[in-house]
Measured scan of single mutants.
Amino acid sequence: KAKLLVLLYAFVATDADTICIGYHANNSTDTVDTILEKNVAVTHSVNLLEDSHNGKLCKLKGIAPLQLGKCNITGWLLGNPECDSLLPARSWSYIVETPNSENGACYPGDLIDYEELREQLSSVSSLERFEIFPKESSWPNHTFNGVTVSCSHRGKSSFYRNLLWLTKKGDSYPKLTNSYVNNKGKEVLVLWGVHHPSSSDEQQSLYSNGNAYVSVASSNYNRRFTPEIAARPKVRDQHGRMNYYWTLLEPGDTIIFEATGNLIAPWYAFALSRGFESGIITSNASMHECNTKCQTPQGAINSNLPFQNIHPVTIGECPKYVRSTKLRMVTGLRNIPSIQYRGLFGAIAGFIEGGWTGMIDGWYGYHHQNEQGSGYAADQKSTQNAINGITNKVNSVIEKMNTQFTAVGKEFNNLEKRMENLNKKVDDGFLDIWTYNAELLVLLENERTLDFHDLNVKNLYEKVKSQLKNNAKEIGNGCFEFYHKCDNECMESVRNGTYDYPKYSEESKLNR
């Protein structure tokens, strides 16, 4: 008799109507990190870190770059004969040098303040090359056809396309004075040089004057150069050297050249137009028929994500570079809930034993079982409120962090190594801060989002509990077992918050 009662009780308990509160689960393989956990499985997430590029040089917003090819900045601007293909260059979106560009200054020497000139050019998007001192009329008392084997072109001695090597005419090199007034309405880049012979005999042979000088002056520039005559090792078949100089001439300003020898005179100059998204990159990537809004030396990035880990040097509207390998923000729920887990921000989770793959029309909802059958029903209101809140948060985070910009490298010469090392340390410090901030932001927001979901499920549970009161009992896994019969209409009233407690209280009292 006792065995019969136990079996009867078990049958009745199993047959009781139930309603459970749960949440969506799926077959997603997404994982995120939080402050407290690593690799948390979630139903949905968004990636904030771009880690792919196309490996190509592309047009930037429809404008092609200027590819210097086998030449570098120095060779292009001075007019190395091997860089003749660059003479027609007028406009570009950015400038590309190759790491091993070999054609710079063909006659050995240095372009002074080269690093600063590169910085200036990094904001130039177009130029006009014009004859600042016409070759045939500007130097009537001097020979202007100086050439050298060091600047050979097609097997013949030649010289820079933008400079003139002035030497004596006959047996004399009379003092020369020439000036140019900038009437271009924009900055003009003027380049010139000073020749330093290897011996007094060479000085006399070329310029006749043993104590020659070169003077260059404008409103913002004033220097006097004296040739340094000295024996030097042979470089590119030359014992002599040429140093090259430049200045930016403001609109309306005048530049005056005065010399008694050794002047490498300007022939062509450049009127410059600035462009905020221009820059110089060093890259071996090849040019393709493609378009982008962000270019790196590795390749083009076409992404609206706020961060990238491809390269710190970028041109155009680019994500911020960070050292992170993963920045994924959760938008959905835990896919593998932890039992009795309390989140960092106070939300209680884990009283549900598992997510439901059968509930596909919402994030949170119900599963019921009664004599009429069983089924899932999503709670659309709480789901939609959660979707709206999380979507707004993700968009806000992306908008705040998605300050796209150009980031170019800084140039230092060989004598500025300590400054370069200090600059690298400062840049590394800023990069570490950006990386830390980005990672911390994602970790915190992921923790908040998961706790937010847990709290929403808990609130749904409490909503049902407050309606049923003692007409049902909690069975410990997020479910309630009714003390009365609850048909589909009754189940719907529980879900929509209109459950009639008094209607079922007498039946429940008897069954309790």
Score class of each variant (00 low, 15 high):
185 G>P: 04
245 Y>G: 10
155 G>E: 14
46 V>H: 07
263 L>T: 00
140 P>D: 06
259 A>G: 09
31 T>F: 01
49 L>Q: 08
143 T>D: 12
148 T>C: 07
59 K>C: 02
220 N>A: 14
53 H>F: 00
179 S>A: 13
259 A>W: 10
160 Y>F: 15
153 H>I: 13
238 Q>K: 10
73 I>D: 00
163 L>C: 10
106 C>Y: 10
247 T>A: 12
43 T>M: 08
139 W>N: 00
198 S>T: 04
24 H>R: 00
174 P>H: 11
200 S>G: 11
26 N>Y: 05
135 K>Q: 12
185 G>E: 14
120 Q>V: 06
276 F>M: 03
177 T>C: 06
167 T>D: 08
29 T>L: 03
260 T>S: 15
42 V>S: 06
271 A>I: 13
237 D>W: 06
219 S>T: 09
154 R>H: 14
34 T>H: 08
276 F>G: 10
12 V>D: 08
13 A>E: 14
27 N>V: 02
75 G>C: 06
156 K>L: 09
119 E>V: 03
110 D>T: 13
63 I>H: 10
267 W>T: 09
76 W>G: 07
265 A>E: 02
205 S>N: 12
168 K>R: 14
67 Q>H: 02
41 A>G: 11
172 S>N: 13
30 D>H: 13
211 N>Q: 14
181 V>E: 07
138 S>I: 08
173 Y>S: 02
220 N>Y: 11
278 S>R: 08
5 L>D: 00
169 K>A: 13
169 K>S: 11
58 C>Q: 15
271 A>R: 10
270 F>M: 11
87 L>Q: 11
280 I>E: 00
15 D>M: 14
37 E>Q: 11
141 N>C: 09
54 N>L: 02
239 H>M: 14
258 E>K: 09
4 L>E: 09
85 S>L: 12
204 Q>T: 11
153 H>L: 06
93 S>H: 05
78 L>K: 01
281 I>R: 03
74 T>E: 04
75 G>Q: 04
278 S>G: 15
275 G>D: 14
163 L>Q: 02
63 I>V: 15
8 L>T: 01
23 Y>T: 15
134 P>S: 12
148 T>Q: 04
278 S>T: 11
54 N>S: 14
258 E>H: 14
107 Y>A: 10
6 V>S: 01
196 H>Y: 13
257 F>H: 04
210 G>E: 10
168 K>N: 06
235 V>I: 15
238 Q>Y: 00
41 A>W: 11
90 R>H: 14
217 A>C: 12
66 L>S: 07
153 H>D: 10
189 L>H: 05
34 T>G: 05
59 K>W: 07
22 G>M: 05
117 L>C: 04
110 D>N: 05
260 T>F: 14
59 K>D: 09
92 W>D: 14
207 Y>E: 05
124 V>Q: 01
254 T>G: 11
198 S>Q: 10
135 K>L: 13
171 D>W: 02
53 H>D: 04
228 E>A: 12
278 S>A: 15
75 G>S: 08
24 H>A: 14
234 K>H: 02
125 S>N: 10
